[in-house]
């Protein structure tokens, strides 16, 4: 193993940053799960709300993407 302590810290930080993606996964699962629960209660309204669901997914996912970005920056830009 080569490298200095800064690199080690960066790699550890990158790995820790990846845990944020779990949060995004929980968020996306929550959105979709609630959507399906609602859709089963009122299937006639589900079709018109699919786009809204995807927007919600996108917003939930955006925060996971930030952790991904942080990980990438730590890996390659620090």
């Amino acid at each position: 193993m080569t490298g200095d302590i800064v690199q080690m810290g960066a790699y550890i930080g990158a790995g820790l940053a990846c845990t944020g993606m779990g949060g995004a996964a929980v968020g996306v699962g929550h959105v979709v799960g609630n959507f399906i629960a609602g859709a089963l209660r009122n299937p006639s309204a589900a079709g018109s709300q699919t786009a809204t669901m995807f927007i919600g997914i996108a917003f939930a996912e955006a925060l996971g993407i930030f952790s991904f970005l942080v990980a990438l920056l730590l890996m390659f830009a620090v």
Binding site: A58, E61, A62, I65, F66, F68, L69
Partner: peptide, 17 residues
């Protein structure tokens, strides 16, 4: 102001990953 960042990294990140 974070919009363009998430907008672009979402697509690139998904594809790359």
């Amino acid at each position: 102001f974070v919009r363009p960042v998430s907008h672009s990294i979402r697509l690139a990140g998904n594809m790359m990953a």
